[in-house]
Design a protein around this nucleic acid. Structure first.
Lengths: 139, 139
DNA sequence: AAAATCCTGACTTATTTAATAGACATTTGA
DNA sequence: TCAAATGTCTATTAAATAAGTCAGGATTTT
Protein backbone atom coordinates (compact mmCIF):
# COMPACT_ATOMS: atom_id res chain seq x y z
CA UNK A 1 0.00 0.00 0.00
CA UNK A 2 2.90 2.29 -0.76
CA UNK A 3 3.83 4.72 -3.49
CA UNK A 4 7.33 3.79 -4.65
CA UNK A 5 10.25 6.12 -5.18
CA UNK A 6 9.28 6.36 -8.82
CA UNK A 7 6.15 8.29 -8.00
CA UNK A 8 7.69 10.13 -5.06
CA UNK A 9 10.83 11.29 -6.88
CA UNK A 10 8.74 12.04 -9.96
CA UNK A 11 6.62 14.39 -7.87
CA UNK A 12 9.79 15.93 -6.47
CA UNK A 13 11.06 16.66 -9.97
CA UNK A 14 7.75 18.16 -11.05
CA UNK A 15 7.43 20.37 -7.97
CA UNK A 16 10.92 21.73 -8.60
CA UNK A 17 10.01 22.50 -12.20
CA UNK A 18 6.76 24.11 -11.08
CA UNK A 19 8.69 26.39 -8.73
CA UNK A 20 10.84 27.54 -11.67
CA UNK A 21 7.95 27.81 -14.10
CA UNK A 22 8.50 30.67 -16.54
CA UNK A 23 12.17 31.01 -15.57
CA UNK A 24 13.84 28.77 -18.15
CA UNK A 25 15.03 25.19 -17.96
CA UNK A 26 16.26 23.37 -14.87
CA UNK A 27 18.73 20.52 -15.26
CA UNK A 28 18.28 17.14 -13.63
CA UNK A 29 21.70 17.58 -12.08
CA UNK A 30 20.44 20.61 -10.16
CA UNK A 31 17.34 18.75 -8.99
CA UNK A 32 19.30 15.63 -8.09
CA UNK A 33 21.79 17.60 -6.02
CA UNK A 34 19.16 19.70 -4.28
CA UNK A 35 17.29 16.58 -3.21
CA UNK A 36 20.24 14.23 -2.77
CA UNK A 37 19.05 11.79 -5.43
CA UNK A 38 20.78 9.89 -8.22
CA UNK A 39 20.76 11.90 -11.43
CA UNK A 40 20.80 8.73 -13.54
CA UNK A 41 17.79 7.38 -11.74
CA UNK A 42 15.88 10.62 -12.27
CA UNK A 43 16.62 10.37 -15.98
CA UNK A 44 14.68 7.15 -16.06
CA UNK A 45 11.76 8.73 -14.27
CA UNK A 46 11.51 11.83 -16.38
CA UNK A 47 11.46 9.92 -19.68
CA UNK A 48 7.85 8.74 -19.25
CA UNK A 49 6.84 12.21 -18.07
CA UNK A 50 8.27 13.66 -21.27
CA UNK A 51 6.57 10.99 -23.40
CA UNK A 52 3.28 11.75 -21.68
CA UNK A 53 3.63 15.44 -22.53
CA UNK A 54 4.06 16.88 -19.05
CA UNK A 55 7.59 18.20 -19.51
CA UNK A 56 9.65 19.44 -22.44
CA UNK A 57 13.39 18.90 -22.69
CA UNK A 58 15.95 21.40 -23.90
CA UNK A 59 19.21 19.77 -24.87
CA UNK A 60 22.72 21.08 -24.72
CA UNK A 61 24.63 23.25 -22.32
CA UNK A 62 22.37 25.33 -20.09
CA UNK A 63 19.51 23.08 -21.12
CA UNK A 64 17.24 21.08 -18.88
CA UNK A 65 13.55 20.56 -18.49
CA UNK A 66 10.51 22.83 -18.29
CA UNK A 67 6.87 22.09 -17.64
CA UNK A 68 4.92 21.59 -20.86
CA UNK A 69 1.77 23.07 -19.28
CA UNK A 70 0.98 25.41 -16.43
CA UNK A 71 1.28 24.12 -12.86
CA UNK A 72 -2.51 24.40 -12.53
CA UNK A 73 -2.98 22.07 -15.49
CA UNK A 74 -0.98 19.18 -14.03
CA UNK A 75 -2.25 17.16 -11.09
CA UNK A 76 -0.45 14.83 -8.70
CA UNK A 77 -2.64 12.10 -10.14
CA UNK A 78 -1.26 12.73 -13.64
CA UNK A 79 2.26 12.14 -12.38
CA UNK A 80 1.47 9.10 -10.23
CA UNK A 81 -0.46 7.44 -13.04
CA UNK A 82 2.40 7.90 -15.49
CA UNK A 83 5.02 6.54 -13.11
CA UNK A 84 3.12 3.98 -11.06
CA UNK A 85 0.30 2.87 -13.33
CA UNK A 86 -3.43 2.97 -12.65
CA UNK A 87 -4.52 4.29 -9.28
CA UNK A 88 -6.12 1.22 -7.75
CA UNK A 89 -5.40 -0.86 -4.66
CA UNK A 90 -5.63 -4.11 -6.65
CA UNK A 91 -5.20 -5.23 -10.22
CA UNK A 92 -8.15 -6.77 -11.98
CA UNK A 93 -10.68 -5.05 -9.74
CA UNK A 94 -13.46 -6.27 -12.05
CA UNK A 95 -12.71 -9.90 -11.28
CA UNK A 96 -13.17 -9.53 -7.55
CA UNK A 97 -16.14 -10.77 -5.65
CA UNK A 98 -18.76 -7.98 -5.20
CA UNK A 99 -18.09 -7.14 -1.55
CA UNK A 100 -14.36 -6.77 -2.06
CA UNK A 101 -14.79 -5.09 -5.42
CA UNK A 102 -16.92 -2.41 -3.79
CA UNK A 103 -14.28 -1.90 -1.10
CA UNK A 104 -11.44 -1.53 -3.61
CA UNK A 105 -13.53 0.88 -5.65
CA UNK A 106 -14.19 3.07 -2.65
CA UNK A 107 -10.48 3.14 -1.80
CA UNK A 108 -9.57 3.86 -5.41
CA UNK A 109 -12.06 6.73 -5.62
CA UNK A 110 -10.90 8.20 -2.33
CA UNK A 111 -7.28 8.23 -3.47
CA UNK A 112 -8.19 9.53 -6.93
CA UNK A 113 -10.16 12.31 -5.28
CA UNK A 114 -7.10 13.52 -3.45
CA UNK A 115 -4.55 13.07 -6.22
CA UNK A 116 -6.64 14.50 -9.04
CA UNK A 117 -7.61 17.55 -7.01
CA UNK A 118 -4.08 18.47 -6.03
CA UNK A 119 -2.22 20.44 -8.69
CA UNK A 120 1.44 21.22 -9.02
CA UNK A 121 0.55 24.80 -8.20
CA UNK A 122 -0.88 23.68 -4.87
CA UNK A 123 2.27 21.70 -4.16
CA UNK A 124 4.74 24.34 -5.32
CA UNK A 125 3.08 27.20 -3.43
CA UNK A 126 2.42 25.28 -0.25
CA UNK A 127 3.36 27.12 2.91
CA UNK A 128 3.41 25.13 6.10
CA UNK A 129 0.16 25.73 7.93
CA UNK A 130 1.43 24.26 11.13
CA UNK A 131 -1.04 21.42 11.24
CA UNK A 132 1.75 19.22 12.43
CA UNK A 133 0.55 18.17 15.86
CA UNK A 134 -2.73 16.39 15.37
CA UNK A 135 -1.77 14.71 12.13
CA UNK A 136 1.85 14.01 12.90
CA UNK A 137 1.58 10.60 14.44
CA UNK A 138 -0.45 7.95 12.78
CA UNK A 139 -1.30 4.37 13.49
CA UNK B 1 0.11 1.65 -4.63
CA UNK B 2 -1.21 -1.86 -4.26
CA UNK B 3 -2.47 -4.05 -1.45
CA UNK B 4 -0.59 -7.35 -1.71
CA UNK B 5 -2.02 -10.84 -1.49
CA UNK B 6 -1.30 -10.82 2.22
CA UNK B 7 -3.97 -8.25 2.87
CA UNK B 8 -6.25 -9.50 0.12
CA UNK B 9 -6.16 -13.16 1.11
CA UNK B 10 -6.32 -12.17 4.77
CA UNK B 11 -9.56 -10.32 4.05
CA UNK B 12 -10.83 -13.37 2.16
CA UNK B 13 -10.17 -15.59 5.19
CA UNK B 14 -11.88 -13.18 7.54
CA UNK B 15 -14.93 -12.74 5.33
CA UNK B 16 -15.33 -16.51 5.16
CA UNK B 17 -15.12 -16.73 8.94
CA UNK B 18 -17.59 -13.89 9.29
CA UNK B 19 -20.07 -15.74 7.09
CA UNK B 20 -19.82 -18.76 9.40
CA UNK B 21 -19.87 -16.72 12.60
CA UNK B 22 -21.70 -18.62 15.35
CA UNK B 23 -21.62 -21.88 13.41
CA UNK B 24 -18.42 -23.45 14.74
CA UNK B 25 -14.90 -23.53 13.34
CA UNK B 26 -13.90 -23.43 9.69
CA UNK B 27 -10.64 -25.07 8.61
CA UNK B 28 -8.08 -23.34 6.46
CA UNK B 29 -8.28 -26.26 4.09
CA UNK B 30 -11.93 -25.46 3.43
CA UNK B 31 -11.17 -21.80 2.84
CA UNK B 32 -8.14 -22.56 0.70
CA UNK B 33 -10.11 -24.93 -1.52
CA UNK B 34 -13.12 -22.65 -1.81
CA UNK B 35 -10.91 -19.79 -2.96
CA UNK B 36 -8.27 -21.80 -4.82
CA UNK B 37 -5.42 -20.65 -2.59
CA UNK B 38 -2.45 -22.40 -0.98
CA UNK B 39 -3.35 -23.70 2.46
CA UNK B 40 0.24 -23.35 3.68
CA UNK B 41 0.34 -19.76 2.57
CA UNK B 42 -2.89 -18.99 4.39
CA UNK B 43 -1.37 -20.49 7.54
CA UNK B 44 1.25 -17.80 7.45
CA UNK B 45 -1.35 -15.10 7.04
CA UNK B 46 -3.66 -16.20 9.80
CA UNK B 47 -0.86 -16.44 12.39
CA UNK B 48 -0.59 -12.65 12.83
CA UNK B 49 -4.37 -12.37 12.88
CA UNK B 50 -4.46 -14.87 15.73
CA UNK B 51 -1.66 -13.06 17.58
CA UNK B 52 -3.54 -9.78 17.18
CA UNK B 53 -6.64 -11.34 18.74
CA UNK B 54 -8.96 -11.29 15.74
CA UNK B 55 -9.35 -15.06 15.38
CA UNK B 56 -9.23 -18.01 17.76
CA UNK B 57 -7.93 -21.43 16.74
CA UNK B 58 -9.42 -24.77 17.65
CA UNK B 59 -7.00 -27.61 17.18
CA UNK B 60 -7.60 -31.20 16.26
CA UNK B 61 -9.98 -32.98 13.95
CA UNK B 62 -13.01 -30.90 13.07
CA UNK B 63 -11.15 -27.88 14.37
CA UNK B 64 -10.35 -24.69 12.55
CA UNK B 65 -10.72 -21.00 13.20
CA UNK B 66 -13.48 -18.75 14.48
CA UNK B 67 -13.70 -14.99 14.81
CA UNK B 68 -12.62 -13.83 18.26
CA UNK B 69 -15.08 -10.89 18.12
CA UNK B 70 -18.30 -10.12 16.30
CA UNK B 71 -18.13 -9.19 12.61
CA UNK B 72 -19.23 -5.67 13.54
CA UNK B 73 -16.25 -5.30 15.87
CA UNK B 74 -13.61 -6.02 13.22
CA UNK B 75 -12.87 -3.58 10.40
CA UNK B 76 -11.09 -4.05 7.09
CA UNK B 77 -8.53 -1.60 8.44
CA UNK B 78 -7.77 -3.91 11.38
CA UNK B 79 -6.91 -6.71 9.00
CA UNK B 80 -4.92 -4.64 6.53
CA UNK B 81 -2.87 -3.05 9.31
CA UNK B 82 -1.99 -6.44 10.81
CA UNK B 83 -0.96 -7.93 7.47
CA UNK B 84 0.43 -4.96 5.57
CA UNK B 85 1.62 -2.57 8.22
CA UNK B 86 0.56 1.03 8.79
CA UNK B 87 -1.89 2.51 6.34
CA UNK B 88 0.17 5.21 4.69
CA UNK B 89 1.31 5.84 1.13
CA UNK B 90 4.89 6.47 2.27
CA UNK B 91 7.12 5.49 5.15
CA UNK B 92 8.50 8.26 7.32
CA UNK B 93 5.73 10.68 6.45
CA UNK B 94 7.03 13.04 9.16
CA UNK B 95 10.32 13.51 7.35
CA UNK B 96 8.74 14.74 4.14
CA UNK B 97 8.74 18.31 3.00
CA UNK B 98 5.50 20.10 4.05
CA UNK B 99 3.74 20.12 0.67
CA UNK B 100 4.27 16.43 0.08
CA UNK B 101 3.64 15.56 3.70
CA UNK B 102 0.23 17.20 3.51
CA UNK B 103 -0.55 15.26 0.34
CA UNK B 104 0.44 11.91 1.87
CA UNK B 105 -1.60 12.68 4.97
CA UNK B 106 -4.69 13.44 2.93
CA UNK B 107 -4.30 10.17 1.03
CA UNK B 108 -3.69 8.25 4.23
CA UNK B 109 -6.76 9.73 5.90
CA UNK B 110 -8.92 9.05 2.86
CA UNK B 111 -7.90 5.39 2.80
CA UNK B 112 -8.22 5.06 6.57
CA UNK B 113 -11.69 6.53 6.33
CA UNK B 114 -12.79 3.77 3.99
CA UNK B 115 -11.02 0.87 5.66
CA UNK B 116 -11.89 1.74 9.22
CA UNK B 117 -15.54 2.28 8.40
CA UNK B 118 -16.01 -1.02 6.63
CA UNK B 119 -16.67 -3.93 8.97
CA UNK B 120 -16.57 -7.64 8.35
CA UNK B 121 -20.32 -7.59 8.71
CA UNK B 122 -20.59 -5.15 5.83
CA UNK B 123 -18.35 -7.37 3.73
CA UNK B 124 -19.97 -10.68 4.67
CA UNK B 125 -23.55 -9.46 4.14
CA UNK B 126 -22.86 -7.54 0.98
CA UNK B 127 -25.37 -8.14 -1.78
CA UNK B 128 -24.48 -6.82 -5.19
CA UNK B 129 -26.20 -3.50 -5.67
CA UNK B 130 -25.64 -3.49 -9.39
CA UNK B 131 -23.42 -0.44 -9.45
CA UNK B 132 -21.24 -2.24 -11.92
CA UNK B 133 -21.55 -0.07 -15.01
CA UNK B 134 -20.36 3.37 -14.05
CA UNK B 135 -17.59 2.18 -11.77
CA UNK B 136 -16.51 -0.86 -13.72
CA UNK B 137 -13.87 0.66 -15.88
CA UNK B 138 -11.31 2.93 -14.37
CA UNK B 139 -8.35 4.88 -15.62
C1' DA C 1 36.48 22.28 -29.80
C1' DA C 2 34.98 21.67 -25.12
C1' DA C 3 31.56 21.51 -21.81
C1' DA C 4 27.00 20.77 -20.38
C1' DT C 5 23.25 18.74 -20.99
C1' DC C 6 19.69 15.21 -22.59
C1' DC C 7 18.94 10.21 -24.37
C1' DT C 8 19.02 5.15 -24.54
C1' DG C 9 19.56 0.47 -23.28
C1' DA C 10 21.63 -2.95 -20.62
C1' DC C 11 22.96 -4.51 -16.29
C1' DT C 12 22.99 -5.25 -11.15
C1' DT C 13 21.64 -5.58 -6.46
C1' DA C 14 18.40 -5.71 -2.65
C1' DT C 15 13.95 -6.46 -1.06
C1' DT C 16 9.53 -8.24 -1.00
C1' DT C 17 6.15 -11.42 -2.44
C1' DA C 18 4.33 -15.64 -2.73
C1' DA C 19 4.69 -19.53 -1.92
C1' DT C 20 6.62 -24.66 -0.69
C1' DA C 21 8.34 -28.23 2.39
C1' DG C 22 8.65 -30.84 6.36
C1' DA C 23 8.28 -31.94 10.97
C1' DC C 24 5.60 -31.65 15.12
C1' DA C 25 1.46 -30.95 18.42
C1' DT C 26 -3.40 -31.51 19.49
C1' DT C 27 -8.01 -33.21 19.31
C1' DT C 28 -11.84 -36.04 17.68
C1' DG C 29 -14.33 -40.01 16.58
C1' DA C 30 -14.34 -44.90 15.40
C1' DT D 1 -6.37 -46.74 21.88
C1' DC D 2 -5.32 -45.18 17.36
C1' DA D 3 -5.80 -43.04 12.89
C1' DA D 4 -7.24 -39.02 10.66
C1' DA D 5 -7.89 -34.24 10.68
C1' DT D 6 -6.60 -30.41 12.05
C1' DG D 7 -3.40 -26.36 13.82
C1' DT D 8 1.87 -24.73 14.78
C1' DC D 9 6.44 -23.71 13.72
C1' DT D 10 10.72 -23.02 11.17
C1' DA D 11 13.27 -22.96 7.15
C1' DT D 12 13.93 -22.61 2.27
C1' DT D 13 13.07 -21.07 -2.40
C1' DA D 14 11.51 -18.96 -6.80
C1' DA D 15 9.75 -15.00 -9.03
C1' DA D 16 8.83 -10.36 -9.33
C1' DT D 17 9.64 -5.65 -8.33
C1' DA D 18 12.20 -1.75 -6.77
C1' DA D 19 15.94 0.94 -6.91
C1' DG D 20 19.57 1.96 -8.66
C1' DT D 21 24.26 1.79 -11.63
C1' DC D 22 26.94 1.86 -15.83
C1' DA D 23 28.48 2.96 -20.36
C1' DG D 24 28.16 5.33 -24.16
C1' DG D 25 25.95 8.40 -27.63
C1' DA D 26 23.47 12.76 -29.41
C1' DT D 27 22.66 17.69 -29.18
C1' DT D 28 23.41 22.43 -28.15
C1' DT D 29 25.86 26.42 -26.26
C1' DT D 30 29.85 29.07 -25.37
Amino acid sequence: MKISTKGRYGLTIMIELAKKHGEGPTSLKTIAQANDLSEHYLEQLIAPLRNAGFVKSIRGAYGGYVLAKGPKEISAGDIIRVLEGPISPVEGIEDEEPAKRALWMRIRDAVKGVLDNTTLEDLANHTDDGETDSYMFYI
